[in-house]
Design a protein around this nucleic acid. Structure first.
Lengths: 222, 222
DNA sequence: GACGCAATTGCCACTGAGAGGCGTAATGCT
DNA sequence: AGCATTACGCCTCTCAGTGGCAATTGCGTC
């Protein structure tokens, strides 16, 4: 009786957002990501086998591959979340008159960053990046993911704002934004001090601001 | 007798550059790259097993991995050659007064391009890029290699020209050059018409020239 | 020109990532 | 409660990549 009432309460509170099944999947997924990040950090990416990982989370390897396409994929999940939010934001964002594309990309990225979950997301990206820095295969997967995302962004920009296909600048500006992102991320992760979300935003501002000066950076003569 | 004379001639011509052993290694390596590129193009990267490949070249799989670190590595060899030449050139190149770093990187890249072997190198890079475009794991390896190279370039720039560690612009400008390279390469490979070396140089000039305008590219308002 | 030495190769066995088929269990819907 | 759907686990298989060890081949020397 009490259980029924309780179940009903749950239903009222959560049911309209997610079903039991969906919540369970989310929990499993999250457990896999967390455990993966922890074990990879403790014993190294290569030294951790999927069997170990799956044993701890108590899922079969078969199931693991229903959630992630590869071992690397699980460890890169936090980054994927950010870029998914970025693309969503890019679709809906209004154009601001007089703004450059670079500014728009920066602001879209900052908006995506603000949309990330509050519970430990920053720790997870930081951990993920630290792992990627010492794990070639993770780095490779991450870069390949960025490349895919880049192409998606270019497509959106062309569709929404009607840039011609042959204009190289669209691709170049997106790659610049990506460079600034990577630069900011490394700055944020490997610099001493706490790695808060606001710090990352500050690093992003700094990196994007440094872009114009990079083009005209003088050689050793000056 | 004639054989001796012949052997001596060979010795005079080639010996001072490469020993028999070294030539044999080079031949094996080249055969592996060529066969790999051809088979990957014919049947697809994933559908081609290393056993198939090694059978054709008549080398054991063990030996394959003494030449290349991975299946992808073999297919990306042409690109690796270019960047190796780029780094070598960057070490020896004199600084030009009044030139920007971006210009220097462009010219260094063009010099490296000119240093590539005449015998079918262009065909091999083109083929390699075409494969990477449809093969995620190859693309990932390629990008990871570019990333490593990028860091090496940054180190050289800092050492030779004394940029401070904390100056983000060094990294950003190298990433810009890399973006221009990728842009030019895709333009060159996927555009109709012949893919000659001069064409690639032209694409590189075009892409590098488009960089400054990309920073200030205006949004849809205009 | 035969020798020993070092480098290169082939064979074999092994690990771990990843894919796929199929039966079973849990969940959602009526 | 009953049925349909979805998710999961077990098993098997392929293939990339590693390491040990013995055999071969090229190199320098006497």
């Amino acid at each position: 009786m009490l259980q029924v009432a309780f179940a009903y309460a749950i239903q009222c509170v959560v049911m309209d957002t997610l079903s039991l099944r969906a919540r369970k999947k989310l929990r499993t997924r999250q457990a896999l990501v967390d455990t993966a990040l922890r074990r990879f950090a403790e014993h190294g990416f290569d030294a951790t086998t999927l069997d170990d990982l799956c044993d701890e989370v108590e899922v079969s390897k078969r199931t693991f591959f229903r959630y992630f396409t590869s071992k690397e994929d699980a460890a890169l999940a936090p980054t994927h979340d950010l870029w998914a939010a970025f693309l969503a934001e890019l679709h809906t964002r209004e154009a601001v008159d007089g703004a450059t594309v670079l500014e728009m990309l920066r602001d879209t990225l900052l908006a995506a960053l603000a949309a990330m979950p509050a519970d430990g997301w920053t720790e997870r990206v930081a951990q993920s990046r630290r792992l990627a820095a010492v794990t070639p295969s993770m780095n490779a997967h991450g870069l390949q993911f960025c490349d895919r995302t880049t192409r998606a962004v270019i497509t959106v920009l062309r569709e929404r704002f009607g840039y011609p296909e042959h204009d190289l600048r669209v691709r170049l500006v997106v790659d610049m934004a990506l460079a600034a992102y990577h630069c900011a991320l490394d700055e944020w992760v490997f610099r001493p001090g706490p790695a808060s979300r606001d710090e990352l935003a500050a690093c992003l501002h700094e990196a994007f601001a440094a872009l114009p000066g990079s083009v005209t950076l003088q050689g050793p003569g000056h």
